[in-house]
Computed example of a mutant assay.
Amino acid sequence: MNNRIESTNEKEHSKTKSYDFALDVINEVQVIKNNHKEFDLSRQLVRSGTAIGALIREAEFGQTKKDFIHKLSISLKEANETDYWLNLLKDAGLITQESFQELAPKCEELLKMFVASIKTARSN
């Protein structure tokens, strides 16, 4: 029973973290659009940054273990893509170093959580 509680807490933690991260990404994209009138790259960031949490929600009700792992794997890929867009936008001068230093560690934390969750799910 203790493992189930930890598992539930981990799920809730990843849901909360990914949701909060999506809100942060949305807010940053608004800044990019307002300050730089840039829409194409920021659209990519918001798409991948918000897909992370949506895929976690899908995984939560996966029909099989394989389906659950597949959805988490896609969420991992979206988090990795988000990391790419964050770095590109920083290097292009479209987000500040301060914004990058706020968002990048959160994205990295999500990446690590998904890798660990996928490993755990595969081993069970």
Results as ranks from 00 to 15, higher is better:
Asn2Gln: 11
Arg4Val: 12
Glu6Ser: 11
Ser7Gly: 03
Thr8Ile: 08
Glu10Lys: 10
Lys11Met: 06
Lys11Phe: 02
Lys11Pro: 00
Glu12Cys: 07
His13Gly: 00
Ser14Arg: 09
Lys15Ser: 10
Thr16His: 01
Lys17Gly: 09
Lys17Asn: 10
Ser18Gln: 05
Ser18Ile: 00
Tyr19Glu: 00
Tyr19Asn: 00
Asp20Pro: 01
Phe21Ala: 02
Val25Asp: 03
Val25Ile: 15
Val25Pro: 04
Ile26Glu: 07
Ile26Met: 09
Asn27Leu: 13
Glu28Ile: 00
Glu28Thr: 05
Glu28Met: 06
Glu28Asp: 06
Glu28Tyr: 02
Val29Ala: 02
Gln30Tyr: 11
Gln30Gly: 06
Gln30Trp: 13
Lys33Thr: 04
Asn34Asp: 13
Asn35Tyr: 03
Asn35Leu: 08
His36Val: 04
Glu38Val: 04
Phe39His: 09
Phe39Asn: 05
Phe39Leu: 02
Asp40His: 14
Leu41Val: 03
Ser42Leu: 09
Ser42Gly: 07
Gln44Tyr: 01
Arg47Met: 04
Arg47His: 14
Arg47Trp: 11
Gly49Ala: 02
Gly49Ile: 01
Thr50Ile: 04
Ala51Gly: 01
Ile52Ala: 01
Gly53Cys: 10
Gly53Met: 12
Ala54Arg: 09
Leu55Cys: 03
Leu55Pro: 02
Leu55Thr: 00
Ile56Asn: 09
Glu58Ile: 10
Glu58Asn: 05
Glu58Gly: 01
Glu60Ala: 12
Glu60Trp: 15
Glu60Ile: 11
Gln63Asn: 15
Thr64Val: 05
Thr64Leu: 02
Lys65Glu: 15
Lys65Ile: 07
Lys66Cys: 14
Lys66Thr: 15
Lys66Phe: 11
Phe68Gln: 02
His70Met: 13
Lys71Arg: 13
Ser73Arg: 01
Ser73Lys: 01
Ser73Phe: 07
Ser75His: 05
Leu76Gly: 00
Glu78Met: 11
Glu78Asn: 06
Asn80Trp: 06
Asn80Val: 09
Glu81Tyr: 10
Thr82Tyr: 06
Thr82Lys: 06
Thr82Cys: 10
Thr82Met: 04
Asp83Ala: 12
Asp83Ser: 13
Trp85His: 11
Leu86Met: 14
Leu86Ala: 10
Leu88Tyr: 15
Leu88Gln: 13
Leu88Ala: 13
Leu89Gly: 14
Leu89Gln: 12
Leu89Pro: 14
Lys90His: 14
Asp91His: 15
Asp91Cys: 14
Asp91Leu: 15
Gly93Asp: 11
Gly93Ser: 09
Leu94Thr: 07
Ile95Pro: 10
Thr96Met: 06
Gln97Ser: 15
Gln97Trp: 02
Gln97Asp: 11
Gln97Glu: 14
Phe100Lys: 08
Phe100Val: 03
Phe100Met: 08
Phe100Thr: 03
Gln101Gly: 10
Gln101Pro: 10
Glu102Asp: 12
Glu102Gln: 11
Glu102Trp: 09
Leu103Ile: 04
Ala104Ser: 11
Pro105Tyr: 07
Lys106Val: 02
Glu109Thr: 04
Leu111Gln: 07
Lys112Phe: 08
Met113Ser: 05
Val115Asp: 01
Val115Glu: 00
Val115Met: 06
Ile118Ala: 01
Ile118Ser: 00
Ala121His: 05
Ser123Ala: 12
Asn124Lys: 15
Asn124Ala: 13
